Amino acid sequence: MKKLVLALALTGVASTAFAGAHGTSKMADPVIEPPVIIEETRKSTAGVVIPIVLLLVAAAAIAANN
């Protein structure tokens, strides 16, 4: 009976000793990768239309003078 109680006591002490971090060791911080955000691009022709219209107006003005 004494051996059984001693075995149970040692098992309880051993299981709590190895259950968590050992107190002096520090765990590394978890690495969390940032989420990848993909944005759909809109087709905008406003940046192209204005210069083309200006070129056409300039070409028409030059053609009218000749």
Rank of each mutant, 00 (worst) to 15 (best):
T16G: 02
H22Q: 12
G20A: 15
G20M: 12
K2E: 11
V31K: 08
T41K: 14
V13S: 03
M27D: 15
A28I: 01
K2W: 07
G12Q: 02
N65W: 13
T11D: 00
S44V: 06
I52R: 01
L4Q: 00
K2L: 05
V48C: 03
V31I: 15
L54C: 09
L10Q: 04
K3V: 09
E40K: 15
M27E: 11
K2F: 04
H22P: 01
E40F: 14
V36P: 00
A28F: 11
A17G: 10
A28V: 04
T45I: 14
G47K: 00
K43T: 15
R42K: 14
I52E: 10
T16V: 06
L56M: 13
A59W: 10
G23A: 06
V31D: 05
V49C: 03
I62S: 03
T11I: 09
A19T: 11
A7L: 08
T24S: 12
L4N: 02
A60S: 14
L4E: 02
F18C: 11
I52W: 07
L56H: 06
E40H: 14
H22T: 14
I52D: 11
M1P: 04
L10G: 00
T45G: 06
P35I: 06
G20Q: 10
L10M: 08
T16H: 07
D29E: 15
T11L: 09
K26P: 06
A7K: 02
A19K: 07
I62Q: 05
A9S: 04
I52G: 01
A58V: 02
A63V: 10
T11V: 03
A59P: 01
V57T: 14
K2V: 05
G12V: 01
P34E: 09
L54K: 09
V5E: 00
D29L: 08
A64D: 07
G23F: 06
S15I: 11
I50S: 13
I52S: 07
K26C: 09
I62C: 04
I38V: 09
N65T: 06
L10A: 08
A17N: 04
V13T: 08
L4I: 14
